[in-house]
Computed example of a mutant assay.
Amino acid sequence: MDAPHRRETRRLQENIDRRMADQHMVLLLARDGFAGRRYERFAEELARYGISVFRAWMHSGFLFQLLAAHGFDLHPDEHEIEELARDGDVREELATMTVARALPRFRQRALVEGGWNRDGGASVATYFIGACVYEFPNEYRRHRSHQERWRRAVHQAGATAENPTVNNVASEVLGRLRVLDDLTNICDPRMRTAVALTLDDYTQEEIKEILGASSVRAVEGLLYRWRTAARREEGERHG
């Protein structure tokens, strides 16, 4: 057997081994009803992987090619493509929100309902990335809508310079930019998701459902820990 054939055989075997390991993991998670601490650790690792993949795909522009191949042509203009290549904060927010929306649907359809199985040819991680691909178009359209509202707010503020609310508008925009910048420093993907969703005006009940959290108080706890850490870091910067 020549080298290319040996590499292909090894790749196929690795894929089989990975899917076998994934099946064992899914069976363990099923014992807990796809809930609890073990599932949370699994979801956190899956979220980290999904965010990493989507950040890279947005940076290279490959994601739009992949989406077009699946029938989701978002027709990004040059400015949008350049923004994603340049702005790591935007990539982080879009990736985080996409993964946050994909996780509960993946849990229900792939795990609870058995949509994923080892004979389907894809690992659990690959199957999850596929779920994220289908979530991204709606998230990107929301991003476009938010950007347009920002532009209108800033334009209106500039056009009404005598209005005392101008400073409030500017402060709101700058405050949002500061929080978006801080998202990249939040290591816990669940906390990062909770902050991003709060920034997008989701209620804590909605955030609880998206995260699969046990209660609204659990969401409040995530946000409280983030605010405490943010205030401490702000104090250290100005101390």
Rank of each mutant, 00 (worst) to 15 (best):
M20F: 09
E209H: 05
A131M: 13
G61E: 08
N167W: 10
R176G: 15
I210C: 00
V133D: 04
I129R: 09
H238W: 11
S171A: 14
R151E: 14
G88I: 08
E209W: 00
E80H: 05
S60C: 02
G50A: 15
N167V: 06
D2T: 12
I186H: 03
R149T: 10
V26C: 04
P76H: 08
D181W: 07
A131F: 14
T160K: 08
L180N: 11
V179N: 00
G175Y: 03
M191R: 12
R18N: 03
A69L: 12
H5T: 14
R109L: 10
F64A: 08
A131H: 12
R10D: 14
E14W: 06
A125S: 12
E93C: 01
H24D: 11
F128V: 09
L67K: 07
E135R: 11
G120A: 08
V216K: 15
V195F: 04
N117E: 10
E93Q: 13
M58Q: 10
A213E: 07
R41C: 01
S171L: 12
R142Y: 05
D22L: 11
L180H: 11
F34M: 05
R86E: 13
R107Q: 09
A21T: 08
C187H: 11
A68E: 14
Y39D: 01
L223T: 06
S145D: 11
R109Y: 02
N138E: 14
E92Y: 03
N117Q: 10
D17C: 01
R231W: 04
H155F: 06
F42H: 12
D87V: 01
R38S: 10
D181Y: 07
E83W: 01
G121W: 10
L223R: 05
G50P: 02
R86W: 09
A47E: 09
R19C: 12
L29T: 05
G36I: 04
Y202W: 13
V219P: 06
R6Q: 14
G130P: 05
P164M: 09
R151Q: 14
R18I: 01
R18G: 00
R107S: 02
N15F: 00
G36V: 05
G36F: 06
V133N: 01
L174K: 04
V90K: 10
L67F: 06
V219Y: 07
D22F: 10
S171N: 12
A35G: 07
G130V: 06
L197T: 02
V154K: 05
Q65R: 14
R232G: 00
N117F: 07
G114C: 08
V154H: 02
L46N: 04
R7E: 14
